Simulated assay, not measured.
Amino acid sequence: MTVDGTVAPGWETVREEFAAFAAAEPNPPEAQLAVRHHGRTVVDLWAGEDTDGATLSGVFSLTKGAAHLVVALLAQEGVLDLERPVSAYWPEFTGHGKERLTVRQLVAHGSGLISVPEGFSYEEIADDAFLAARLAAQEPYWEPGTAYGYHAFVIGALTGEVVRRVTGRSLQEVYEERVRAPYGLDLYMGLPAELEGRWKPVLEMLPTPAQLELLAAGGPLPELLRTAFNWHHEPPMDMVAYANHPKVKALGPASAGGSGTARGVAALYAAAISGLDGRPALLEPATVADVARLHTPGQDRVTSEADHFGLGFETQPAVGPEAFGHCGAAGGNGFADPVTGIAYGYTRRRFGFPGGLAPENGRLTAAVLKVARGL
């Protein structure tokens, strides 16, 4: 598998690691890797039969990084008070203990509102305003604020409704006006029509026979996991169909409906901690420390992961306690590490096995950090 793109002098080992991974993949990964160091692009690579550095596609929960950056920015500016009850901004958000939930607990996946019993259609789950109205009246799957669990397809709708109540603008609009457009990010919540020519669909996983055996041996999925990922809906959600759905692409739901490139993901995190092209960093050091701080000790009720979230962002144990970011279902990841100044973006158009954070991120991240720590 040919690897294209460039690396800055001194970063050649990252290209070697990326090429080794791409050569070992049984199917074209259609992957992109971009890294910025203190805001400067040092890695810009891609591999696949139908992908280049500018190819846009669905990035799933990498979108959550953009959404939670908006929340962090508004909290930093005092527009949003994380310690206030959600109901202080959103009066309809009451009942079953919801009125006691703080904004901070909501952003850290603590509401228990992971779905509704019947699930959602593709058209419904693409519409954050619809989701917010429906979930405000829903009984949570656990007492709000007493536990946490991954709100896979609805967290952006819930936090986005708080953003809308406090600013009068949708989370997508605030992101576009305050973050994406000023910093020129190739990461969109709602794909502009003029960029359709650069967009290519997410591709299905093509597991090997050994991987199929592993999938078959996994047994039935836990109920809350099925619910949070909308697999309890009839028919169950198809993740590839979701990402490629026209309404998802057009509306850019803030939980998992963004479109972008690895360049865009890396630039998002560089804008957060380092600034870009003469523009200052979006987040102050105290805010960076707050978003990275562990907010959810213990086990995730949905995914069973431990110590899963900072302020909406996922913890990054392979990087360090100061790092924050978010992965995506097809295998991608994005993170910022203020200690080394690294902003990392990795995307896949073809699902990696078994879905979620792809294992090659460990090797790629280690190669990136080794160079950065040696400089």
Rank of each mutant, 00 (worst) to 15 (best):
residue 257 G to N: 12
residue 31 A to N: 07
residue 275 G to S: 08
residue 111 S to F: 02
residue 219 G to Y: 12
residue 166 V to H: 05
residue 33 L to I: 10
residue 278 G to F: 02
residue 179 V to E: 05
residue 75 A to D: 06
residue 351 F to P: 10
residue 108 A to V: 08
residue 315 T to V: 13
residue 238 D to S: 15
residue 50 D to G: 11
residue 50 D to W: 05
residue 230 N to W: 08
residue 161 E to Y: 05
residue 364 L to H: 00
residue 156 G to E: 08
residue 134 R to K: 12
residue 170 S to R: 15
residue 329 A to Y: 15
residue 334 G to P: 07
residue 83 E to T: 09
residue 341 G to R: 09
residue 20 A to N: 03
residue 106 L to S: 03
residue 253 P to S: 15
residue 46 W to Y: 12
residue 86 V to M: 02
residue 69 L to F: 03
residue 363 R to C: 01
residue 246 P to K: 15
residue 185 L to F: 04
residue 161 E to D: 08
residue 275 G to L: 07
residue 349 R to I: 08
residue 284 E to S: 06
residue 24 A to K: 09
residue 357 L to E: 09
residue 283 L to H: 01
residue 115 S to N: 15
residue 91 P to I: 01
residue 89 Y to A: 14
residue 32 Q to F: 14
residue 299 Q to M: 02
residue 34 A to M: 05
residue 280 P to W: 02
residue 205 M to Q: 14
residue 286 A to I: 00
residue 349 R to K: 14
residue 136 A to I: 01
residue 220 P to H: 05
residue 224 L to Y: 12
residue 359 P to R: 14
residue 317 P to R: 11
residue 190 G to D: 10
residue 277 D to R: 14
residue 284 E to I: 00
residue 77 E to T: 03
residue 143 E to V: 12
residue 130 F to D: 06
residue 44 D to Q: 12
residue 42 V to M: 12
residue 214 L to G: 00
residue 361 N to G: 03
residue 235 P to N: 06
residue 170 S to Y: 02
residue 64 K to E: 07
residue 227 T to W: 05
residue 40 R to D: 13
residue 254 A to D: 10
residue 42 V to E: 11
residue 93 F to T: 04
residue 186 D to I: 06
residue 33 L to E: 04
residue 364 L to F: 08
residue 316 Q to W: 13
residue 324 F to T: 11
residue 139 E to A: 15
residue 233 H to E: 07
residue 45 L to N: 08
residue 233 H to G: 03
residue 216 A to K: 15
residue 158 L to F: 01
residue 63 T to G: 07
residue 131 L to G: 09
residue 346 Y to F: 14
residue 165 R to W: 01
residue 280 P to C: 04
residue 307 D to I: 05
residue 132 A to S: 11
residue 76 Q to G: 03
residue 245 H to N: 15
residue 321 P to S: 11
residue 256 A to V: 13
residue 118 E to N: 12
residue 274 S to P: 02
residue 282 L to E: 00
residue 92 E to H: 00
residue 355 G to V: 01
residue 71 V to W: 13
residue 151 H to L: 06
residue 215 L to T: 09
residue 374 G to V: 00
residue 88 A to H: 14
residue 60 F to S: 10
residue 74 L to D: 01
residue 340 T to I: 09
residue 251 L to D: 06
residue 203 L to S: 10
residue 323 A to Q: 12
residue 74 L to T: 00
residue 244 N to M: 14
residue 201 P to I: 13
residue 247 K to T: 11
residue 272 A to D: 04
residue 314 E to S: 08
residue 305 E to D: 12
residue 301 R to D: 01
residue 3 V to M: 13
residue 375 L to G: 03
residue 116 V to S: 08
residue 347 T to E: 08
residue 350 R to Q: 06
residue 197 G to N: 10
residue 247 K to S: 05
residue 81 D to W: 03
residue 16 E to A: 15
residue 328 G to W: 13
residue 277 D to K: 06
residue 307 D to W: 03
residue 134 R to E: 14
residue 191 L to Q: 11
residue 137 A to M: 10
residue 110 G to F: 04
residue 361 N to E: 04
residue 39 G to M: 07
residue 97 G to L: 08
residue 298 G to S: 04
residue 96 H to Q: 07
residue 195 L to P: 03
residue 149 G to F: 09
residue 350 R to I: 09
residue 367 A to Y: 02
residue 101 L to R: 03
residue 101 L to V: 02
residue 126 A to P: 12
residue 223 E to H: 10
residue 258 G to N: 09
residue 267 A to M: 00
residue 280 P to H: 10
residue 208 T to A: 09
residue 296 T to P: 05
residue 295 H to N: 13
residue 172 Q to A: 14
residue 166 V to P: 02
